[in-house]
Design a protein around this nucleic acid. Sequence first.
DNA 1: GTAATATAGTTCTAATACGAACTATTGTCA
DNA 2: TGACAATAGTTCGTATTAGAACTATATTAC
Lengths: 154, 154
Amino acid sequence: MTHRNAQEYTSEQARKEAWLPLMQELVRCYQAFSRHSARHIKSLGLTPSQFDVIATLGNTEGMNFKMLGQETLITKGTLTGIIDRLEAKGLVRRVNSGQDRRSTLIQLTEQGQRLFEKVFPEHIRYLSTSFERLDSEQQTQLRRLLRGLRNHFF
Amino acid sequence: MTHRNAQEYTSEQARKEAWLPLMQELVRCYQAFSRHSARHIKSLGLTPSQFDVIATLGNTEGMNFKMLGQETLITKGTLTGIIDRLEAKGLVRRVNSGQDRRSTLIQLTEQGQRLFEKVFPEHIRYLSTSFERLDSEQQTQLRRLLRGLRNHFF
DNA sequence: GTAATATAGTTCTAATACGAACTATTGTCA
DNA sequence: TGACAATAGTTCGTATTAGAACTATATTAC
């Protein structure tokens, strides 16, 4: 997605397409963030997706697959495997949710809750040292521009 | 990485951490872009990584694994498999590079070259309709802010 | 009330993705 | 030159990832 070639394309064939460097920067910035974050999460003994699920379930009575998928942007097929492994680690459990017998409630176990209380604030602190170097005005502006761009991907 | 929980955390425990929504927006924007892009690439019969390699090799004499990995941000272990499959499709070939007998040059085949010439401009056009909705000032600003943020992920 | 349809989760396949271990080759240095 | 470190790719293990097909259950429509 970074497209070394896009440089040449820009200068040779479509000088008007000044958005290509923006696209490259979006990809690079996300990847840098993502790897930075993953480095710390792995040191906590979790994968990024597992952390994501733990963080989403924390301070909650539980959530079914559908809701959990919407929050984490993980598709249900993938989620099944992630929950399997978290369950094997004793961090979450599957509970029959009351009415609809198709639906399953996923909850943190006590151990999962303790882990959440430990690693979530730790990770937030870890990330804060990077993000806080932008002053709050830049943060606001960046967020607004990203939102604007996102709305154009249908 | 989207962390529904981060909302509560923000308001309850750390009102100062106003960067959390920015982080969420970075993730959402990238994911939206990435899925938007992938949708089109798949319709061209390629995976995003395969397209990335084709686009990087286009207009080039070829590239070894190291260089290709640097350009595409794909690790070498992963790259082996991707090149295997592109080779099986007849789109690239491995060539013994002259001096260093450890090194392998990867080149587009004629078929790969033709594919590149077809799909690369097509995909750029496809993406342009989204990016060009930001005016060029916003594009520049967004790029600058993203670059600034990226430099803080060490 | 039953057939058609929709929904929740699971299973399956193919392709990434990362990192560690491995092989082959090259470079360094005493 | 000869041990030793560094490098290029491959292989391997584990975990995602998307999406399609599948099962079980629930809802809708007639």
